[in-house]
């Protein structure tokens, strides 16, 4: 059965995007971002998502908030509730007020996390098999999972992330339908691997190189899987399962450690 979410997304154009600080191993301030190319890549991604059958809402960009483009990290959507992120790094914390204002003005109930935990929204939490799978260590706290579970009345499975290059869960895990997911076990500790093994009946297991191409950071719209670049083996497996792979290069955004999924936030997730 296909995913029952992923038909409505929030995106933010890269007007003020750039690598202005370094908070993951991909970011290097000395590597310049080509803003024109970034705009083209973003527009193309938006068009690809829409032509796959999804609706895209747009969040206004803000000067001084270069990572606002990565809307996946804005927070967590659950039905009509929105849980704004509590960012680990102070550089991203000013994004929260802007994100919350958009959700508030679009009919969502803002459900804040307590101030003493960190959680980076859909970047570190994805629904699968009736539970919310959530990563911790680099950006989100394990303690935030308990808070989220109580706040939203959801079962949460915690996964410890171990590779700083794969610092968010959505770089290592991508739900495809109700039985299948793209998984990058090299990003998890042994306990996390067991948890996913028990949860996902048919995993598409990426090797290290495939994982580092960010192909788990895909946007899935029905049977369309949108990723920056598709390793041949992964493409064959996905096609064998009946998915259509569309490549949508986001090289400029990879300079900041973000792929296709990071640039989108699904607005139609409902678990509870």
């Amino acid at each position: 059965m296909r995913l029952d979410w992923g038909r409505r997304y929030l995106m933010c154009p890269p007007e003020h995007f750039g690598v202005l600080y370094e908070i993951n191993p991909w970011m290097h301030r000395e590597v310049p971002v080509d803003l024109d190319r970034a705009r083209d890549e973003w527009e193309r991604l938006r068009a690809t998502v829409e032509s796959a059958g999804a609706h895209v809402e747009v969040l206004d960009p803000r000067p001084g908030l270069p990572d606002l483009v990565f809307t996946a990290n804005a927070g967590l959507v659950e039905g009509d509730r929105f849980v704004p992120s509590r960012f680990r790094h102070p550089q991203r914390q000013p994004e929260v007020a802007h994100d919350a204002a958009w959700f508030s003005s679009h009919g969502f109930v803002i459900t804040p996390l307590p101030e003493d935990v960190h959680h980076e929204g859909a970047g570190d939490a994805l629904p699968f098999g009736g539970v919310l799978l959530s990563g911790y260590r680099f950006r989100s706290d394990a303690a935030s999972h308990t808070v989220l579970s109580k706040l939203l009345g959801l079962p949460v499975r915690s996964l410890e992330l171990v590779d700083p290059r794969l610092y968010h869960l959505d770089l290592t895990f991508c739900p495809l339908d109700d039985r299948r997911a793209i998984v990058a076990p090299s990003g998890w500790d042994a306990y996390g691997r067991q948890v996913v093994e028990a949860l996902v009946p048919e995993p598409l297991v990426l090797d290290d190189d495939e994982a580092l191409s960010f192909c788990a950071n895909s946007v899935v719209v029905g049977t369309t899987v949108i990723m920056p670049v598709c390793p041949a083996r992964v493409g064959r497996l996905l096609e064998g399962w009946g998915f259509e792979v569309v490549e949508s290069p986001v090289d400029e955004f990879l300079k900041a450690g973000g792929g296709c999924r990071c640039l989108t936030l699904a607005l139609d997730v409902r678990l509870a």
């Binding site: 999972h145 949460v156 499975r157 915690s158 996964l159 410890e160 306990y191 996390g192 948890v195």
Partner: peptide, 13 residues
């Protein structure tokens, strides 16, 4: 320790 610590194997960990 609080949470889904059994299913997430956090307790064992």
């Amino acid at each position: 320790l609080e949470g889904h610590i059994i299913d997430s194997l956090i307790f064992a960990k």
